[in-house]
Design a protein around this nucleic acid. Structure first.
Lengths: 411, 411
DNA sequence: CCACTTTGGCAACAGTGTTGCGGAAGTGCA
DNA sequence: TGCACTTCCGCAACACTGTTGCCAAAGTGG
């Protein structure tokens, strides 16, 4: 929960909650349920049941949301013997966010609405080693491109007031440098989320290292982009962004409150969602799954250790032994499942995409053996291929801006 | 955050917050800071700074706490040029909880006050295989023993009102069975926490298995004890209880918001504290650290897998190779640290107690190598011996009842 | 057409944290 | 000794939350 009007606590302790925080919390909760309901919509009374709030409180909150243009009435349900329930739904066009997936050799930029639906996209090749100026230029260009598609149509965005407690910081650096000026003029644009590989500081938005590209060490990516674009920017690891995207858009939704997203591509990493929130750790270092040691004194990994999953798994892939790669991945996934008692394992990445069924059944087999030995009550943890394929990272990056509005995915 | 007056949400979703929940939250927060301040105390203004609440709000909250007998004024600070700050402190005698550590061959029962200080203790040998009746009888006898020491002195306990929102459920089954009747008459007794090894359901208080004692499968321990004793009972795994106890009483305190407690005794398990709360997972299965596989196709473990840390580590101990055991433990700890990005690793258990320095340096060495390869900003995760030795599990069990009052350690 | 059920808004209410202000209790200086 | 100043902290009025009691609206079913 966030304090709205008052400054937060000094010492990183748990924050006290005032009335502003209370409203923010409940508003975000309702907004989240509206989003989860999708086009089908949800009635006020159902919102009351789900939140535990009284129907009257929900009425007040939704009235505020309708006045702000974030929600609208959308038909009514069948009657059950009395006045039929009025269905409410989110107004997707009331807000937008940009998601940027910055990969080693590729750039993908998506524009999503409040619903999380992709309404614009740009793709292109990119050389992360071409220098900061070139990369930033390419990113800014692509972002301006997708946002431009919104056009004057977007000015019907979020109405008066300060949105739903997310802090109205859209005016940052309107007089920024670079060609094209700020994007703050587009009222419904909440900001830009950037996802990229390698360790970084999510809170400060500073890169630590990008494996293979030492020139990025310590680069303050968030501030650099925020200044050029004139809108808020959030930076995160690609696996965390993907996990966030899956946590939000999940058909798993209510079922899988805790899951791990395992990404097997040129490397092996994980994004963890625990109790509905992305777990990053104090230094944004969580999810280092690939360098988990599962073979003492095994083959040397580039990280310096021996017997990391990544080196074992990728070596098996290189030898063409996909089933063995899946088994190795399954053992590491089993360790993770046992440690955290998560609900679902989702697999993604280019390598998995090459033989999805093999990986799903291979990992599932290992987890199944694990569950059987636990005995009563221990159904096997399900393994699935992560939906929405390659675009999930960019979509999740956009959710870095949207999630705070809906009260999930972030603390 | 808990809803106080209203019933919670239906579908296990995130709860909406009403004014009662707001008060509960802030009261618990203040109470927690009072406890952390200990005998030294803390002033109202400092409470305001730490919580982010206004001084006036803190005044109101502390006035309520003083009226309830939970807090009291305790001298004043040195002046800094004006009226000196009045120091407040917790009144430890206002509440008590019992912690029970039920081990395979031993029983330990402690009585602690609100401060967490042990004010009474019973120890004795116990055979977990002697049957439910005998074990429950021994536990109830020991609990009545330590609580009896409180005597009539305890009736000065929590004043009027319903405490701090923890739900006044102390009246359960006052007309219970068994000799001695209920303990509900002792006003300041919040309940009994029980910690024991083996998988169990923390929410329902039902045991799954206790390795080596199949007769306990599916036993509803919480309800059985609650009926006999007439006070609320909470059940948890021993490692989780220990972790909770360390999270609460920690000199680490503010520093270590996330840590792992690794327990090496007759088995190997872990308790995880993430962002200040014990992580149990949906099925109370989290922390299965011992059966993490770190050697593919290694020696067979009793769990059915091959190459579990537990079997490797304990085999090394049996061979007398303590340094090797520590290295193996360190590798597994490194996997954990990398996955969760935790702040501290604490070691405990009888085996560790036999050669603490060897384990601390052995595990620390592995983690140090890990940190060095991460490069900039990556100080090694510190490794320490868990303080308070063998009694930490029983103390932590008592904290299962106290923690909800203070707004930490539980969700 | 009427009785009944169900929804959902209006008004009054209880209780939160917040703001404005003033008394209390010290220090520091003339 | 007296006075100005600083700081702490509580009282009273306030703004805002969610809650309760009540009633109009909008359906169904006889």
């Amino acid at each position: 929960m966030r304090t709205a009007t008052t400054a937060g606590p000094v010492n990183g302790g748990v924050a006290g909650a005032n009335l502003g925080a209370l409203r923010s919390h409940n508003t975000a909760l309702v907004l989240g349920l509206l989003r989860d309901a999708g086009a089908e919509g949800i009635s006020r009374l159902e919102l009351a049941e789900r939140t535990g709030l009284t129907p009257q409180a929900v009425s007040k909150i939704t009235a505020r949301l309708r006045a702000q243009g974030l929600a609208a009435e959308a038909g009514r349900r069948a009657s059950t013997g009395g006045k039929p329930r009025t269905v409410l739904r989110l107004v997707p066009e009331a807000g937008h966010a940009v998601g940027v997936h910055l990969d080693r050799d590729e750039l993908r930029v998506v524009l999503v609405d409040l619903d999380g639906a992709v309404v614009g996209e740009r793709r292109g090749e990119l050389d992360l080693g071409a220098g900061a100026e070139a990369v930033l230029g390419a990113v800014c260009g692509a972002v301006r491109g997708v946002v431009g598609e919104l056009g004057a149509d977007a000015d019907a965005g979020v109405g008066t007031g300060t949105g739903a407690g997310a802090g109205a910081g859209a005016g940052i650096g309107t007089g920024g440098t670079g060609a094209g000026g700020g994007l703050a003029a587009v009222g419904s644009l909440l900001g830009v989320g950037v996802a990229l590989p390698g360790p970084l500081d999510h809170v400060r938005g500073v890169l630590h290292r990008v494996t293979g590209f030492p020139e990025w060490d310590g680069f303050p990516l968030r501030d650099a982009l925020a200044e050029r674009l004139g809108v808020p920017v959030v930076v995160d690891k690609d696996t965390n962004a993907a996990a966030l995207g899956l946590a939000v858009g999940g058909e798993e939704g209510a079922a899988g409150r805790s899951f791990a997203y395992l990404h097997l591509g040129t490397g092996l990493g994980a994004g963890l969602v625990i109790d509905g929130s992305v777990h990053r750790g104090a230094r944004t270092g969580a999810g280092e799954f690939g360098h988990q040691v599962i073979q003492l004194d095994g083959p040397v990994c580039e990280c310096g250790n021996r017997g990391c999953v990544e080196v074992l798994c990728l070596a098996a892939v290189a030898r063409g032994e996909v089933a063995e790669a899946a088994r190795v991945l399954g053992v590491a996934a089993g360790n993770l499942v046992g440690l955290l008692d998560i609900d679902v394992v989702l697999l993604g990445g280019r390598t998995v995409a090459g033989a999805p069924q093999t990986y799903v059944s291979g990992v599932g087999e290992v987890l199944g053996v694990r569950a059987r030995r636990e005995g009563t009550g221990g159904d096997a943890v399900p393994v699935r291929v992560a939906p929405r394929g390659e675009r999930i990272v960019a979509e999740g990056a956009a959710q870095l801006l949207l999630a705070p509005l809906f009260g999930r995915g972030e603390d």
